[in-house]
Simulated assay, not measured.
Amino acid sequence: MKRMIALLLLAGCSQLSIAQEKKAKYSGNPVFPGWYADPEGVVFGKDYWIYPTFSAAYDQQVFFDAFSSPDLVTWIKHPDILDTAAVKWAKRALWAPSIVEKDQHYYLFFGANDIQNNQETGGIGVAVANNPAGPFKDYLGQPLVSQIINKAQPIDQYVFHDSDGKYYLIYGGWGHCNIAQLKDDFTGFIPFEDGITFREITPEKYVEGPTMFKKDGKYYFMWSEGGWTGPDYSVAYAIADSPMGPFKRIGKILEQAPAIATGAGHHSVIALPAENRWYIVYHRRPLTEKAANSRETCIDRMYFDKNGLIQPIKITKAGVPAALIRK
């Protein structure tokens, strides 16, 4: 009798272990605890990295944390990789980091101060480090973009590295989006052939949060629509033959699921084309939360149909399966 009870207990423990193991093989959503938004997902070497906005009142947004993982399941927090103490002109509202690696340095582009006019100090800055975990220091000593150009508030910056080696800064809030070609050292911009430095590429219904990637020779431009504090926040996209467009809106591919979460938006894309794996990293608001800054970072798979169109994304609680970077 005792042996039978022991066997039953052992079987129960085994089933529990299997259940825990299955659970551990998925990232879960959110992928890490805490209120974080506007996540930038990238790959450096054999690790996945996420650089989000600390989601809090503007005056409390004075630093960035980063997170790294070898498998999308186990995440390591790298606290305070950059804060306003290292950027003399930045005082508040550190937003939406975007990072690129170049010549063994890591360049972190960020928005600061939430400027409302051209008399205020702030805009888009650049910080640099020798390690993706920082610490980062101010690269220019002043904003890279400090003015409201083409009615685009200088926030929500994304750096796109094209296959021809050129780097572009794509940014903008207030319903307007600009693109500009960066100098090789990221200290300024190279005017386009027509003499324009900041070209507006705003598509229909654009609000903020631009992202771009290239697949099969086509440029996929994605952005957020709706209000960031509400349930209608979402992501739409367009495809063009050039990073300058023109971009004609195709449709919405990420939005709330009433049974899971609201306000799904302001995303980035982790692309592993050699492995045919594409992920969307985004923030959303739990159903239990109403506060504007109660946003958490999540990840789900992104798929394409036979014509290269992005299939509507199903937001999940499970997240994505564990996956090492093979190449």
Score class of each variant (00 low, 15 high):
residue 151 K to I: 05
residue 151 K to D: 14
residue 147 Q to H: 02
residue 126 V to A: 04
residue 142 Q to G: 08
residue 147 Q to F: 00
residue 146 S to F: 01
residue 154 P to T: 07
residue 157 Q to L: 03
residue 185 D to M: 08
residue 116 Q to M: 00
residue 143 P to K: 10
residue 118 N to E: 07
residue 134 G to T: 11
residue 142 Q to C: 13
residue 152 A to P: 07
residue 122 G to R: 06
residue 170 I to H: 02
residue 175 G to T: 03
residue 163 S to V: 13
residue 120 E to V: 03
residue 131 N to F: 14
residue 174 W to F: 02
residue 131 N to Y: 10
residue 147 Q to K: 03
residue 130 N to T: 12
residue 127 A to C: 03
residue 161 H to S: 09
residue 121 T to C: 05
residue 188 G to H: 06
residue 154 P to H: 13
residue 149 I to D: 01
residue 130 N to D: 15
residue 125 G to L: 01
residue 124 I to A: 04
residue 132 P to G: 06
residue 135 P to C: 00
residue 136 F to C: 13
residue 146 S to A: 03
residue 125 G to Q: 02
residue 153 Q to D: 12
residue 119 Q to V: 00
residue 159 V to F: 01
residue 125 G to R: 03
residue 165 G to L: 05
residue 167 Y to F: 14
residue 121 T to E: 05
residue 181 Q to L: 14
residue 170 I to A: 01
residue 157 Q to N: 04
residue 179 I to S: 01
residue 154 P to R: 08
residue 187 T to V: 11
residue 123 G to L: 06
residue 148 I to H: 09
residue 125 G to H: 05
residue 169 L to C: 14
residue 176 H to M: 09
residue 116 Q to D: 00
residue 130 N to M: 11
residue 188 G to L: 08
residue 161 H to F: 12
residue 159 V to Q: 02
residue 184 D to T: 14
